[in-house]
């Protein structure tokens, strides 16, 4: 790990260098697991694959453990090394990133639970046409935010922020459609609520991807872009 430095810029203290490297590895492993959980939860939902939904739910404790372990490593680095500048931004990024990743995993689990509930219904409705697009966008946003982190690419992270509005618009359109459907056909309410919840969870995943992207921008160039225009 060399934060904003080139590959040759290594820490004079090699133990410190190893600790920062280990933290980075842990973040990447955790992000990889969470990315797979989103993809699996969405596929389980789309294809009514109950086995895949259960497997997704079973992965969650692994993410919880990863969060606790990464937090502990961050605290150890803060206490023992008093990191500065890029290293400080990296460790504070890690603290926030693991929280966002853990919540994304929880939301993926919630999508998987809705997939199970829908599969359990006698006549589940066909998936809403925009659902696939929302899932695709939310997954891609998380992937891109992580990629921006790996490449230390603030421009790539900024591109993630711009996609959040599209997800919000799609979700609100889907919500209006579902509401109209449920008002018109009361028998669709049970399924409609499940579909709406799954879409909401995906929309929340996109929000956390936005957080991740904002954190990456601060890590890379020290610019705080959170709550622009709202503070």
């Amino acid at each position: 790990m060399s934060s904003v430095h080139g590959p040759n810029k290594r820490h004079i203290d090699r133990d410190y260098e190893r600790e920062l490297g280990e933290l980075r590895e842990r973040l990447l492993r955790m992000a990889g697991v969470v990315e797979s959980m989103i993809a699996d939860a969405v596929r389980a939902y789309m294809t009514r694959d109950t086995a895949l939904a259960r497997r997704t739910i079973d992965v969650d404790p692994q993410v919880n453990r990863a969060e606790v372990e990464a937090d502990a490593l961050c605290l150890q680095i803060l206490a023992r090394r008093q990191p500065m500048a890029g290293d400080l931004r990296f460790v504070t990024l890690a603290l926030k990133m693991v929280t966002d990743l853990e919540r994304i995993a929880d939301l993926a689990v919630s999508v998987a639970h809705r997939a199970l509930a829908l599969a359990d219904m006698d006549a589940p409705p066909p998936p809403h046409p925009d659902m696939e697009r929302i899932a695709e966008l939310a997954g891609a946003m998380v992937r891109e935010a992580i990629d921006a982190f790996v490449r230390r690419d603030a421009a790539r992270a900024r591109a993630v922020l711009e996609r959040d509005d599209e997800v919000d618009d799609l979700y609100h359109g889907l919500f209006r459609d579902l509401l109209a459907e449920m008002r018109g056909h009361r028998t669709t309410i049970d399924a409609g609520i499940l579909v709406q919840a799954a879409a909401k969870f995906l929309e929340r995943i996109a929000d956390h991807a936005t957080n991740l992207a904002e954190e990456v921008i601060f890590f890379v160039d020290g610019t705080d872009v959170r709550h622009r225009g709202k503070r």
Partner: peptide, 19 residues
Amino acid sequence: LFTAPGDPRTEDYITGRFG
């Protein structure tokens, strides 16, 4: 200066790095 220094030489010094 200690959170987001403007010059890479400052960054290298305060984070304890060498090229």
